[in-house]
Write a protein that binds this DNA or RNA. Structure first.
Length: 296
DNA sequence: GCCCAGGTGAAGC
DNA sequence: GCTTCACATGGG
């Protein structure tokens, strides 16, 4: 299985590195509504992963990355970007149907990220009935208010880590609402408390079956099937998790069941059966396609 | 003003 | 069971 090549993934401390990886569309990946902390500055994307400020840039078949403090081991970034995933192998498992073929052709190089689970849970808790741009703004306010400052270059905007669960568990609901979280503030606090108290161990979810992990997340108030599947897909590595939001629901109905009445139950059965071992990737292609390319 | 946004939970038939 | 509605907030 071909993997990305990387110069000096573990070597002398460096401020930058390059991953050479075929079929990686950085812009589509960072801007496809799976992560909410990336900002396009010129031709580069700036964000924070854990406590690291990062600037990444597409250079043809390679991704160039810069950080603010020298790094020996770049494994954390390779893991986040999932550069070792061979996209061709993933796409080869997709069913050969017209809608998916169109979506894959339109969104060439779209990938899934592997995000920190707590950040993923918290940000998707804040996502309900919000547009992606607004989710970004809420998350930015939250990080500025409650996240640790992280080192960044002088020309960059001040950067903050995503607030820990322990920190948010100690924040009053009114202060969360001041970040424009609205009715989601209560849910965010409850999740922070559950994680901080270790009543919910997010790191252990990946050891469970998909159904068990999903059930554990759905114990939290404000976490239903859709948000749970986002966390499992984007933060825990469950490649068959298949979040169905308004866009994906629309994609399934319009593209697979045109002019037919389909119950949510039927849709679920279809999804479980149809998309294969990387159904979550297929979901992301349909989502991005509907948002950026499809004209009804 | 009206409708919608990567939803969920509670209440109503 | 399935449908309707409230929940905050901002953009088109």
């Amino acid at each position: 299985m071909p993997v990305a090549t990387c110069c000096e993934r573990a070597a002398r401390p460096r401020y930058d590195t390059t991953f050479c990886v075929p079929d990686y569309n950085l812009a589509a990946t960072l801007d496809s509504g799976q992560a909410f902390r990336w900002r396009l500055v010129g031709d580069a994307w700036e964000g924070v992963i854990g406590h690291q400020w990062v600037r990444v840039r597409q250079m043809g078949e390679c991704i160039h990355a810069e950080v603010a403090a020298p790094v020996c081991d770049w494994g954390w970034l390779a893991d986040y970007l999932q550069v070792d995933v061979c996209l061709a192998d993933v796409l080869a498992t997709f069913p050969n149907d017209a809608p998916l073929r169109r979506a894959v052709a339109a969104c060439h190089g779209l990938r899934l990220l592997r995000q920190p689970a707590w950040e993923c849970l918290a940000t998707f808790l804040l996502s309900s009935t919000k547009q992606i741009g607004q989710i970004r703004q809420i998350v930015a306010r939250l990080c500025r208010a409650f996240g640790e400052p992280v080192a960044c270059p002088p020309e960059a905007a001040p950067a903050f880590a995503f607030p820990t669960a322990a920190r948010l568990a100690g924040v009053g609901e009114a202060d969360l609402r001041a970040c424009k979280t609205g009715f989601r503030a209560r849910y965010l606090r409850a999740a922070a408390e559950a994680v901080a108290s270790e009543q919910l161990d997010l790191e252990r979810l990946s050891l469970l079956s998909l159904a068990e992990a999903r059930a554990a997340l759905m114990q939290l108030p404000g976490v239903g099937r859709k948000i749970a599947d986002c966390v499992l897909l984007f933060g825990c590595g469950f490649s068959t998790a298949f979040p169905v939001d308004v866009w994906v629901g629309r994609a399934l109905r319009e593209l697979y069941f045109p002019r037919r009445r389909v119950s949510p139950r039927q849709l679920e059965a279809f999804v479980t059966d149809h998309f294969g071992p990387f159904a979550g990737y297929a979901q992301q292609y349909l989502f991005h396609y509907m948002r950026c390319h499809h004209v009804p």
